[in-house]
């Protein structure tokens, strides 16, 4: 199975460990993993700010890098959703379409394609799950409190397989953290207030870690936790799933 790893720009630059954990985990699970070296960004930061018209070059580069693979996997629900919804390439419309249909968020790939049921990982800690909106409401990685779905969660299904891990759900299980792309700076006050409120609920559960499938949410929550000198740390779900003692 030829899998291309997409490591979104800010993970590549600021959270390489998330990329490493994803890479190692996929290898462990028997995938033939490639990392196309000229990849950059999915284009979401611009598009969500209203500048989708400027992402033609970015899109083209994405298609150039990721064409020809069976699957594309990324440790970010948000970037995957953006590609699924918005990737286009006028010169290569068929390739763009194929990519839109074969790109997966990591936990979705592990559950739906690899059908992982028995992970060999250990993480003996109290962990709070932050559900990222784009993963949940966009990619449907888990049921949503607003709708009448039967409860399910792909990330939690995987976390349940991790030895020693104690999973704790915040009071409002799927409220947005307030990152929101450039919202985090243009609406700084609301963004931070939303993040503080998320953090408070996890702290009330006395967690050691907050985990999520999106580094962007975690980066925002981490920034708040650090500023508050909190003992709670953030960790990407790939790092937990790849963790052994």
């Amino acid at each position: 199975m030829k899998v291309a790893l997409f490591v979104p720009c800010y993970i590549d630059q600021f959270y390489p460990n998330v990329g490493i954990a994803t890479y190692q985990l996929l290898k462990k699970l028997g995938c033939d993993v490639a990392f196309p070296l000229n990849q950059t960004c999915c284009g979401q930061p611009m598009a969500n700010s209203g500048f989708s018209a400027t992402t033609t070059g970015c899109d083209k580069n994405f298609v150039e890098n990721f064409k020809g693979f069976d699957y594309i996997v990324a440790p970010s629900g948000s970037c995957v959703l953006h590609i699924k919804d918005h990737l286009k390439d006028e010169q290569n419309p068929e390739e763009a379409k194929k990519i839109r249909n074969s790109i997966y968020e990591l936990t979705e790939f592990l559950v739906d394609i690899l059908k992982v049921t028995n992970l060999e990982s250990t993480f003996p800690h109290r962990v709070g799950m932050h559900i990222s909106c784009h993963g949940q409401r966009g990619l449907h990685l888990s049921s949503m409190t607003e709708t009448m779905d039967k409860p399910f969660s792909k990330p939690e299904q995987l976390l349940m397989q991790v030895k020693g891990l104690q999973l704790l759900t915040p009071e409002r299980p799927d409220e947005c953290c307030g990152f929101g792309g450039t919202f985090c700076v243009f609406e700084e006050a609301v963004s931070v207030k939303m993040g503080k409120d998320r953090v408070k609920e996890h702290e009330a559960n006395d967690v050691e870690y907050i985990t999520a499938g999106d580094v962007s949410c975690l980066m925002h929550l981490e920034g708040i936790l650090k500023r508050q000198n909190s003992r709670v740390k953030t960790i990407h779900i790939a790092e937990i799933l790849n963790h052994t003692v």
């Binding site: 700010s49 209203g50 909106c133 929101g180 792309g181 243009f186």
Partner: peptide, 10 residues
């Protein structure tokens, strides 16, 4: 106003 949202989808 369209920017006063995180696009969370709720």
């Amino acid at each position: 106003l369209p920017f006063a949202s995180t696009l969370c989808g709720s």
